[in-house]
Simulated assay, not measured.
Amino acid sequence: MTATPMRQFALQGAAVILVLSLAWPYFGLNAEALPWLPTSLAIGGVAFIFATLSRQPWWWRAIHAGFMPLVWFTHSQQIDPGWFLLAFVLLLLVYRGALSGQVPLYLSNKQTVAALAELLAERGPSRFLDLGAGVGSTTVPLADLLPDSHFTGYENAPLTWLVGLLLSVGRPNIRWRWDDLWQAKLGDYDVVYAFLSPVPMPKLWAKAQSEMQPGSLFISNSFPVPGLSPSRIIDVDCTPPRPLYCYQL
């Protein structure tokens, strides 16, 4: 089972149905109120088992284990529903890519930027595209280090796009776009950089192959293209390790 949102809802729902179908008749026949804390813990345990059996990534297993216990805890605190709406809106503004394309917000660190700057310096002035550019943690410092190159960032989460736009002000070699990365014309760039997740990599590589020009370079931070040997791997000196997988077109 792949880690798609609808399937995760189905998995959690299956755990809820299984536990309640066993617990409700027992407590109903004994005229006892359903103990929600043990029930939520049981649902979390069953959901964790389902997630493990379906070989979900570790973070999905943790989410499934803790979801219902957190629902019980939150309900017991009697928190005003308005706070949940506010939290949802803020999360949507920052993590829209995780909802629409299973691409969470990753920020490139200084060591990665230094490695990319060295690689770009070897190639000379370039047209660099950052797919899922976040707040500009890659694009902005690279534009400062390499003023002869031109940098474009694509970001579809409104709040992170706005932060990146503000940070790019005063840098004429940056073009900052609020757009879906799948709408980018990769053939307009010499170097395309992505720090996404394993999920979109096969589709993104197919797009790169069909659009990028011969001699251009596709770079993926941390997540290699499945089944394809990179032309070069740059080991970035950081913790946790974040290798750069480079694919020459």
Rank of each mutant, 00 (worst) to 15 (best):
V163W: 12
T160D: 11
Y106T: 08
G66H: 10
A143F: 03
L146W: 03
Y193H: 14
P125L: 07
W83E: 05
G101W: 09
A98N: 04
F128Q: 11
V192H: 12
N221R: 07
P38C: 06
T2S: 11
L11Q: 11
D130A: 02
L166G: 07
T39Q: 05
P214D: 02
A14P: 03
A143T: 03
G82K: 09
G187L: 00
G215K: 13
I63G: 10
F88K: 09
A133M: 03
T74C: 07
D235W: 05
L41K: 00
L120S: 09
A98V: 08
T52F: 15
W60T: 11
F27P: 02
N109H: 06
V192Q: 10
G170A: 01
F195P: 10
A114P: 01
V89T: 03
L228N: 06
P38F: 04
G164T: 04
V103W: 05
S126G: 15
A3Q: 08
H75P: 08
D148I: 04
V46F: 00
A133T: 09
L131G: 13
T160P: 15
P202Y: 07
N109Q: 12
M212K: 01
A51E: 09
R7V: 05
A157E: 10
V191W: 02
V163S: 06
I43C: 06
W161C: 09
L22A: 05
N173V: 01
P35K: 04
L91P: 03
L131T: 02
D130I: 14
G66M: 01
A31Y: 15
V140C: 01
P230C: 10
D80Q: 10
G164P: 00
F223D: 00
P69I: 03
V225H: 06
F9S: 08
P200C: 04
P104D: 12
K185A: 11
Y95R: 06
T139H: 12
A208V: 15
P147M: 03
A65Q: 10
F73G: 04
A194K: 14
R242W: 12
P69C: 05
N221Y: 05
W178E: 13
V191N: 11
F9L: 15
L146A: 11
S108H: 10
D188W: 01
L29T: 04
N109P: 02
H150Q: 13
L167N: 11
L186G: 01
R175C: 02
Y247C: 01
R171L: 12
A23V: 00
F84H: 07
L37C: 03
W24L: 14
A121G: 13
P38K: 08
T112V: 01
T139K: 08
E118I: 03
L29P: 03
W72S: 00
S21F: 01
C246W: 14
L90P: 10
E118S: 12
G124S: 04
